[in-house]
Protein backbone atom coordinates (compact mmCIF):
# COMPACT_ATOMS: atom_id res chain seq x y z
CA UNK A 1 0.00 0.00 0.00
CA UNK A 2 2.81 2.40 0.94
CA UNK A 3 4.72 1.48 -2.22
CA UNK A 4 1.59 2.18 -4.24
CA UNK A 5 1.26 5.57 -2.58
CA UNK A 6 4.87 6.48 -3.36
CA UNK A 7 4.49 5.35 -6.96
CA UNK A 8 1.32 7.42 -7.40
CA UNK A 9 3.13 10.37 -5.85
CA UNK A 10 5.93 10.04 -8.41
CA UNK A 11 3.37 10.03 -11.24
CA UNK A 12 2.07 13.34 -9.93
CA UNK A 13 5.37 15.11 -10.60
CA UNK A 14 5.30 15.11 -14.43
CA UNK A 15 1.58 15.90 -14.35
CA UNK A 16 2.21 18.89 -12.11
CA UNK A 17 4.99 20.17 -14.39
CA UNK A 18 2.78 19.76 -17.43
CA UNK A 19 -0.04 21.57 -15.69
CA UNK A 20 2.22 24.46 -14.75
CA UNK A 21 3.42 24.81 -18.36
CA UNK A 22 -0.16 24.85 -19.63
CA UNK A 23 -1.18 27.42 -17.00
CA UNK A 24 1.70 29.62 -18.01
CA UNK A 25 1.14 29.30 -21.76
CA UNK A 26 -2.63 29.78 -21.60
CA UNK A 27 -2.22 33.07 -19.84
CA UNK A 28 0.46 34.27 -22.25
CA UNK A 29 -1.24 33.09 -25.41
CA UNK A 30 -4.53 34.72 -24.42
CA UNK A 31 -5.14 37.97 -26.32
CA UNK A 32 -4.76 41.29 -24.57
CA UNK A 33 -1.64 43.04 -23.34
CA UNK A 34 -1.45 43.13 -19.56
CA UNK A 35 0.27 46.51 -19.72
CA UNK A 36 -2.67 48.30 -21.35
CA UNK A 37 -4.67 47.76 -18.19
CA UNK A 38 -2.24 49.52 -15.89
CA UNK A 39 -0.43 52.01 -18.13
CA UNK A 40 -1.92 55.42 -18.74
CA UNK A 41 -3.28 55.76 -22.27
CA UNK A 42 -0.70 58.39 -23.14
CA UNK A 43 2.35 56.48 -21.92
CA UNK A 44 5.34 56.72 -24.23
CA UNK A 45 6.95 53.76 -25.91
CA UNK A 46 9.97 54.07 -23.55
CA UNK A 47 7.78 54.05 -20.48
CA UNK A 48 5.97 50.96 -21.78
CA UNK A 49 9.26 49.21 -22.47
CA UNK A 50 10.53 50.06 -18.99
CA UNK A 51 7.39 48.63 -17.42
CA UNK A 52 7.65 45.57 -19.63
CA UNK A 53 11.17 44.81 -18.50
CA UNK A 54 10.27 45.56 -14.87
CA UNK A 55 7.79 42.67 -14.97
CA UNK A 56 10.15 40.56 -17.07
CA UNK A 57 7.70 40.50 -19.95
CA UNK A 58 10.40 41.37 -22.51
CA UNK A 59 12.24 38.09 -22.08
CA UNK A 60 11.57 34.99 -24.25
CA UNK A 61 8.69 32.77 -23.01
CA UNK A 62 10.84 29.82 -21.88
CA UNK A 63 12.99 32.14 -19.79
CA UNK A 64 9.92 33.78 -18.31
CA UNK A 65 8.53 30.34 -17.46
CA UNK A 66 11.80 29.22 -15.86
CA UNK A 67 11.96 32.34 -13.70
CA UNK A 68 8.27 32.04 -12.72
CA UNK A 69 8.34 28.34 -11.88
CA UNK A 70 11.65 28.69 -10.01
CA UNK A 71 10.15 31.34 -7.78
CA UNK A 72 6.85 29.47 -7.50
CA UNK A 73 8.71 26.45 -6.14
CA UNK A 74 9.85 28.61 -3.22
CA UNK A 75 6.31 29.89 -2.64
CA UNK A 76 6.81 33.22 -4.40
CA UNK A 77 4.18 33.72 -7.09
CA UNK A 78 5.16 37.31 -7.80
CA UNK A 79 3.25 40.50 -7.12
CA UNK A 80 -0.18 41.38 -8.37
CA UNK A 81 -0.03 44.04 -11.07
CA UNK A 82 -3.33 45.52 -9.93
CA UNK A 83 -2.78 45.69 -6.17
CA UNK A 84 0.96 45.25 -5.79
CA UNK A 85 0.39 42.68 -3.03
CA UNK A 86 2.10 39.26 -3.13
CA UNK A 87 0.05 36.86 -5.26
CA UNK A 88 0.71 33.95 -2.87
CA UNK A 89 -1.06 35.74 -0.01
CA UNK A 90 -4.04 36.69 -2.14
CA UNK A 91 -4.39 33.19 -3.58
CA UNK A 92 -3.97 31.55 -0.20
CA UNK A 93 -6.71 33.67 1.40
CA UNK A 94 -9.03 33.12 -1.56
CA UNK A 95 -8.44 29.37 -1.77
CA UNK A 96 -9.18 29.11 1.94
CA UNK A 97 -12.56 30.75 1.37
CA UNK A 98 -13.24 28.59 -1.67
CA UNK A 99 -12.36 25.45 0.24
CA UNK A 100 -14.77 26.49 2.94
CA UNK A 101 -17.53 26.96 0.38
CA UNK A 102 -16.65 23.73 -1.44
CA UNK A 103 -16.67 21.69 1.77
CA UNK A 104 -19.94 23.25 2.89
CA UNK A 105 -21.50 22.42 -0.47
CA UNK A 106 -20.09 18.86 -0.27
CA UNK A 107 -21.50 18.32 3.19
CA UNK A 108 -24.91 19.25 1.81
CA UNK A 109 -24.56 17.51 -1.55
CA UNK A 110 -22.91 14.16 -0.83
CA UNK A 111 -25.27 12.70 1.77
CA UNK A 112 -28.32 13.85 -0.19
CA UNK A 113 -26.89 12.64 -3.51
CA UNK A 114 -25.84 9.28 -2.06
CA UNK A 115 -29.18 8.74 -0.37
CA UNK A 116 -31.30 9.72 -3.37
CA UNK A 117 -29.12 7.73 -5.75
CA UNK A 118 -29.16 4.63 -3.59
CA UNK A 119 -32.90 4.68 -3.06
CA UNK A 120 -33.56 5.38 -6.75
CA UNK A 121 -31.27 2.53 -7.76
CA UNK A 122 -32.89 0.23 -5.23
CA UNK A 123 -36.43 1.10 -6.32
CA UNK A 124 -35.47 1.23 -9.98
CA UNK A 125 -38.25 1.99 -12.47
CA UNK A 126 -40.66 3.02 -9.75
CA UNK A 127 -42.24 6.43 -9.32
CA UNK A 128 -39.59 7.35 -6.75
CA UNK A 129 -36.83 6.53 -9.23
CA UNK A 130 -38.46 8.78 -11.82
CA UNK A 131 -38.80 11.65 -9.38
CA UNK A 132 -35.15 11.40 -8.34
CA UNK A 133 -33.95 11.08 -11.93
CA UNK A 134 -36.05 14.07 -12.95
CA UNK A 135 -34.74 16.10 -10.04
CA UNK A 136 -31.15 15.07 -10.79
CA UNK A 137 -31.38 15.99 -14.47
CA UNK A 138 -32.97 19.32 -13.60
CA UNK A 139 -30.27 19.99 -11.01
CA UNK A 140 -27.48 19.27 -13.45
CA UNK A 141 -29.10 21.21 -16.29
CA UNK A 142 -30.22 24.39 -14.55
CA UNK A 143 -27.50 27.05 -14.81
CA UNK A 144 -26.44 27.42 -11.18
CA UNK A 145 -25.68 31.15 -11.38
CA UNK A 146 -29.30 31.62 -12.45
CA UNK A 147 -30.45 29.44 -9.56
CA UNK A 148 -28.25 31.53 -7.26
CA UNK A 149 -29.95 34.72 -8.42
CA UNK A 150 -33.39 33.14 -7.97
CA UNK A 151 -32.49 32.06 -4.43
CA UNK A 152 -31.24 35.56 -3.67
CA UNK A 153 -34.53 37.02 -4.91
CA UNK A 154 -36.54 34.61 -2.76
CA UNK A 155 -34.54 34.39 0.46
CA UNK A 156 -32.72 37.71 0.55
CA UNK A 157 -34.94 40.17 -1.30
CA UNK A 158 -38.45 38.86 -0.64
CA UNK A 159 -38.10 37.03 2.66
CA UNK A 160 -35.02 38.85 4.03
CA UNK A 161 -33.92 35.68 5.78
CA UNK A 162 -30.38 35.42 4.54
CA UNK A 163 -27.69 37.80 3.31
CA UNK A 164 -26.98 37.76 -0.39
CA UNK A 165 -23.37 38.91 -0.52
CA UNK A 166 -19.95 38.43 0.95
CA UNK A 167 -18.44 36.03 3.45
CA UNK A 168 -19.33 37.86 6.64
CA UNK A 169 -20.99 40.89 8.13
CA UNK A 170 -19.65 44.24 6.93
CA UNK A 171 -17.69 42.60 4.15
CA UNK A 172 -14.87 41.65 6.52
CA UNK A 173 -12.45 39.24 4.94
CA UNK A 174 -11.85 37.16 8.05
CA UNK A 175 -13.95 34.03 8.47
CA UNK A 176 -15.26 33.00 11.88
CA UNK A 177 -17.37 30.09 13.00
CA UNK A 178 -20.33 32.02 14.29
CA UNK A 179 -23.89 32.39 13.12
CA UNK A 180 -23.24 35.82 11.60
CA UNK A 181 -20.69 34.26 9.23
CA UNK A 182 -22.41 30.93 8.67
CA UNK A 183 -25.54 32.77 7.51
CA UNK A 184 -23.49 34.10 4.61
CA UNK A 185 -22.40 30.61 3.70
CA UNK A 186 -25.88 29.08 3.38
CA UNK A 187 -27.12 30.46 0.06
CA UNK A 188 -23.91 30.01 -1.96
CA UNK A 189 -23.33 26.56 -0.49
CA UNK A 190 -26.85 25.40 -1.28
CA UNK A 191 -26.63 26.80 -4.80
CA UNK A 192 -23.29 25.16 -5.35
CA UNK A 193 -24.56 21.84 -3.98
CA UNK A 194 -27.30 21.39 -6.57
CA UNK A 195 -25.09 20.15 -9.43
CA UNK A 196 -23.10 17.64 -7.37
CA UNK A 197 -26.33 16.34 -5.83
CA UNK A 198 -27.55 15.58 -9.33
CA UNK A 199 -24.29 14.06 -10.51
CA UNK A 200 -23.76 11.92 -7.40
CA UNK A 201 -27.41 10.80 -7.38
CA UNK A 202 -27.33 9.78 -11.04
CA UNK A 203 -24.02 7.96 -10.76
CA UNK A 204 -25.01 6.10 -7.61
CA UNK A 205 -28.42 5.23 -9.04
CA UNK A 206 -26.86 3.62 -12.12
CA UNK A 207 -24.22 1.94 -9.99
CA UNK A 208 -26.62 0.46 -7.45
CA UNK A 209 -29.04 -0.58 -10.16
CA UNK A 210 -26.24 -2.41 -11.98
CA UNK A 211 -24.95 -4.08 -8.84
CA UNK A 212 -28.41 -5.32 -7.88
CA UNK A 213 -28.77 -6.97 -11.28
CA UNK A 214 -25.43 -8.78 -10.91
CA UNK A 215 -25.34 -12.54 -10.40
CA UNK A 216 -23.64 -12.41 -7.05
CA UNK A 217 -26.65 -10.69 -5.49
CA UNK A 218 -28.79 -13.67 -6.40
CA UNK A 219 -26.03 -15.95 -5.15
CA UNK A 220 -26.09 -14.11 -1.82
CA UNK A 221 -29.81 -14.76 -1.47
CA UNK A 222 -29.22 -18.35 -2.57
CA UNK A 223 -26.83 -18.92 0.32
CA UNK A 224 -29.37 -17.64 2.80
CA UNK A 225 -28.27 -14.04 3.32
CA UNK A 226 -30.86 -11.66 4.70
CA UNK A 227 -31.85 -8.53 2.91
CA UNK A 228 -29.71 -6.36 5.21
CA UNK A 229 -26.63 -8.52 4.52
CA UNK A 230 -27.20 -8.13 0.79
CA UNK A 231 -27.50 -4.35 1.15
CA UNK A 232 -24.16 -4.33 2.96
CA UNK A 233 -22.55 -6.18 0.07
CA UNK A 234 -24.09 -3.82 -2.48
CA UNK A 235 -22.88 -0.73 -0.61
CA UNK A 236 -19.39 -2.15 -0.30
CA UNK A 237 -19.37 -2.79 -4.06
CA UNK A 238 -20.63 0.68 -4.88
CA UNK A 239 -18.27 2.49 -2.51
CA UNK A 240 -15.12 2.79 -4.66
CA UNK A 241 -16.87 4.35 -7.64
CA UNK A 242 -19.07 6.57 -5.48
CA UNK A 243 -15.98 7.76 -3.65
CA UNK A 244 -14.12 8.67 -6.82
CA UNK A 245 -17.09 10.61 -8.17
CA UNK A 246 -17.34 12.56 -4.93
CA UNK A 247 -13.61 13.29 -4.87
CA UNK A 248 -13.67 14.68 -8.39
CA UNK A 249 -16.80 16.70 -7.61
CA UNK A 250 -14.98 18.30 -4.70
CA UNK A 251 -12.22 19.30 -7.10
CA UNK A 252 -14.76 20.79 -9.51
CA UNK A 253 -16.50 22.63 -6.69
CA UNK A 254 -13.27 24.35 -5.76
CA UNK A 255 -12.34 25.46 -9.25
CA UNK A 256 -15.70 25.58 -10.90
CA UNK A 257 -17.46 27.98 -8.61
CA UNK A 258 -16.38 31.15 -10.44
CA UNK A 259 -19.92 32.11 -11.38
CA UNK A 260 -21.38 31.33 -7.97
CA UNK A 261 -18.64 33.25 -6.21
CA UNK A 262 -19.29 36.16 -8.55
CA UNK A 263 -23.05 36.07 -7.97
CA UNK A 264 -22.63 36.01 -4.19
CA UNK A 265 -19.48 38.18 -4.06
CA UNK A 266 -17.80 35.35 -2.20
CA UNK A 267 -14.10 36.26 -1.79
CA UNK A 268 -12.85 32.93 -3.07
CA UNK A 269 -10.52 31.73 -5.80
CA UNK A 270 -13.19 31.95 -8.49
CA UNK A 271 -13.93 35.52 -7.57
CA UNK A 272 -10.22 36.30 -7.54
CA UNK A 273 -9.84 34.59 -10.91
CA UNK A 274 -12.59 36.56 -12.58
CA UNK A 275 -11.13 39.81 -11.20
CA UNK A 276 -7.69 38.82 -12.43
CA UNK A 277 -9.08 38.09 -15.89
CA UNK A 278 -10.92 41.40 -16.17
CA UNK A 279 -7.92 43.36 -14.92
CA UNK A 280 -5.47 41.34 -17.04
CA UNK A 281 -3.50 40.79 -13.86
CA UNK A 282 -1.06 38.27 -15.28
CA UNK A 283 0.84 37.14 -12.18
CA UNK A 284 -2.37 36.83 -10.18
CA UNK A 285 -4.09 34.89 -12.95
CA UNK A 286 -1.15 32.52 -13.38
CA UNK A 287 -0.79 31.97 -9.69
CA UNK A 288 -4.48 31.29 -9.08
CA UNK A 289 -4.80 28.86 -11.98
CA UNK A 290 -1.64 27.06 -10.90
CA UNK A 291 -2.82 26.63 -7.32
CA UNK A 292 -6.28 25.44 -8.43
CA UNK A 293 -4.82 23.04 -10.99
CA UNK A 294 -2.38 21.61 -8.48
CA UNK A 295 -5.21 21.17 -6.01
CA UNK A 296 -7.12 19.23 -8.65
CA UNK A 297 -4.10 17.01 -9.27
CA UNK A 298 -3.81 16.51 -5.53
CA UNK A 299 -7.52 15.60 -5.26
CA UNK A 300 -7.06 13.01 -7.99
CA UNK A 301 -4.13 11.54 -6.08
CA UNK A 302 -6.20 11.30 -2.89
CA UNK A 303 -9.08 9.68 -4.77
CA UNK A 304 -6.78 7.14 -6.44
CA UNK A 305 -5.13 6.18 -3.20
CA UNK A 306 -8.40 5.99 -1.29
CA UNK A 307 -9.93 3.89 -4.05
CA UNK A 308 -7.02 1.50 -4.03
CA UNK A 309 -7.37 1.22 -0.27
CA UNK A 310 -10.98 0.07 -0.43
CA UNK A 311 -11.22 -1.72 -3.78
CA UNK A 312 -9.25 -4.98 -3.86
CA UNK A 313 -9.58 -5.18 -7.64
CA UNK A 314 -7.17 -2.27 -8.10
CA UNK A 315 -3.68 -3.66 -8.17
CA UNK A 316 -1.66 -2.22 -5.34
CA UNK A 317 1.68 -3.86 -6.05
Amino acid sequence: MFAYFVRRLLYVLPVAIGVSIICFLLVHIAPGDPLTAIMPVDATAEEQAAMRSAYGLDKPLPVQYAIWIGKAATGDLGKSIATGRPVANEVFAAVKNSLLLAFAASIIAFPIGLFLGFVAGYFRDTIFDRIVTGFAITGVSVPNYWLGIVLVIIFSVNLSWLPSMGAGPGGSGEWAWDYAHIRHLILPAVTLAVVPIGIVARTVRALVGDIFSMDFVQALYAKGMRHSDVLKHVIRNAAPTALSVMGLQLGYLLGGSILIETVFNWPGSGFLLSNAIFQRDLPLLQGTILVLALFFVFMNLIVDVAQAAIDPRIKRS
Partner: peptide, 20 residues
Amino acid sequence: RGGDVSMVFQEPALALDPVY
Protein backbone atom coordinates in the same frame (compact mmCIF):
# COMPACT_ATOMS: atom_id res chain seq x y z
CA ARG B 1 -31.52 -21.38 1.42
CA GLY B 2 -27.89 -22.27 1.90
CA GLY B 3 -28.70 -24.43 4.92
CA ASP B 4 -30.83 -27.25 3.49
CA VAL B 5 -30.28 -26.54 -0.17
CA SER B 6 -27.44 -24.64 -1.78
CA MET B 7 -26.36 -23.87 -5.27
CA VAL B 8 -23.22 -23.83 -7.37
CA PHE B 9 -23.56 -21.28 -10.13
CA GLN B 10 -22.49 -21.47 -13.73
CA GLU B 11 -20.09 -18.54 -13.59
CA PRO B 12 -18.12 -18.47 -10.34
CA ALA B 13 -16.51 -15.23 -11.49
CA LEU B 14 -19.90 -13.53 -11.40
CA ALA B 15 -21.49 -15.41 -8.52
CA LEU B 16 -18.82 -14.46 -5.97
CA ASP B 17 -18.79 -10.95 -4.57
CA PRO B 18 -15.72 -9.30 -6.12
CA VAL B 19 -14.83 -7.12 -3.13
CA TYR B 20 -15.00 -9.72 -0.36
